[in-house]
Amino acid sequence: MKTTPEHNQRITKMTFASVYPHYITKVESKGRTKEELLQVIEWLTGYTESDLKTMIEEKVSFETFFEKATLNPNAPLVKGVICGYRIEEIENPLTRNVRDLDKLVDELAKGRKMEKILRT
């Protein structure tokens, strides 16, 4: 499934603060911890917990969130399907980054081992 320009634009404007509570709920409802979620986000973006608090307070868009991030060099190893999209086929870099994050959160919630999630 290819992303549409409208889909990409919607992701660009979405704030990290609006999605983060859903990430926490998802992983905690499956027996994982907020600390594990923070570890996954830090692995992908380089952001510490205090960085994330600032991003949430400032209500930054995903566009700004990923512009300021230092992506992990192993991020391209994130593959698979999330929200009906095959990650490795997504051409828009921002949409790809957001779906990478979604996929990592999904893997955490499904109980995958941390070393596999972090591609070590």
Results as ranks from 00 to 15, higher is better:
71 L>Y: 09
100 D>R: 15
42 E>L: 10
120 T>G: 13
58 E>K: 15
28 E>V: 05
98 V>L: 10
97 N>A: 13
118 L>Y: 00
117 I>W: 03
48 T>F: 08
67 E>I: 10
16 F>G: 02
5 P>R: 07
98 V>T: 06
3 T>N: 02
119 R>H: 11
75 A>G: 08
44 L>Q: 05
27 V>N: 02
42 E>T: 07
63 E>K: 15
47 Y>V: 09
24 I>H: 04
40 V>D: 06
47 Y>K: 09
52 L>T: 01
98 V>F: 00
61 S>R: 07
64 T>V: 15
77 L>R: 13
17 A>T: 08
16 F>P: 08
17 A>F: 06
11 I>D: 03
17 A>C: 09
40 V>L: 10
72 N>H: 10
109 A>I: 04
23 Y>M: 13
9 Q>S: 13
49 E>K: 14
13 K>P: 04
19 V>Q: 14
95 T>W: 00
44 L>R: 07
54 T>P: 04
25 T>C: 02
54 T>G: 09
3 T>D: 07
2 K>M: 00
118 L>C: 06
6 E>I: 12
21 P>S: 05
4 T>S: 14
38 L>Q: 04
97 N>H: 13
40 V>W: 04
68 K>M: 00
59 K>T: 10
74 N>Y: 11
9 Q>G: 03
66 F>Q: 04
63 E>A: 13
86 R>G: 00
30 K>C: 15
90 I>Y: 06
91 E>N: 08
33 T>K: 01
105 V>F: 02
10 R>W: 10
80 G>I: 12
101 L>I: 11
59 K>F: 05
63 E>G: 09
59 K>W: 01
100 D>F: 14
9 Q>H: 10
88 E>R: 02
53 K>N: 13
65 F>R: 10
21 P>W: 05
78 V>P: 00
5 P>V: 04
56 I>E: 09
80 G>C: 11
50 S>I: 03
101 L>D: 03
2 K>D: 05
85 Y>F: 15
59 K>H: 12
15 T>K: 07
32 R>F: 02
58 E>M: 11
112 R>A: 01
22 H>P: 06
72 N>V: 10
107 E>P: 10
1 M>A: 14
89 E>K: 01
105 V>N: 02
65 F>M: 11
78 V>W: 03
50 S>N: 11
1 M>G: 13
110 K>A: 08
68 K>P: 10
104 L>D: 05
109 A>F: 08
49 E>C: 01
68 K>C: 03
117 I>P: 07
99 R>I: 05
6 E>S: 14
118 L>R: 09
14 M>D: 11
72 N>C: 08
19 V>S: 12
96 R>F: 12
82 I>L: 02
28 E>S: 04
40 V>F: 03
108 L>K: 03
29 S>V: 05
53 K>V: 12
9 Q>I: 05
52 L>R: 02
94 L>M: 01
54 T>L: 13
17 A>V: 06
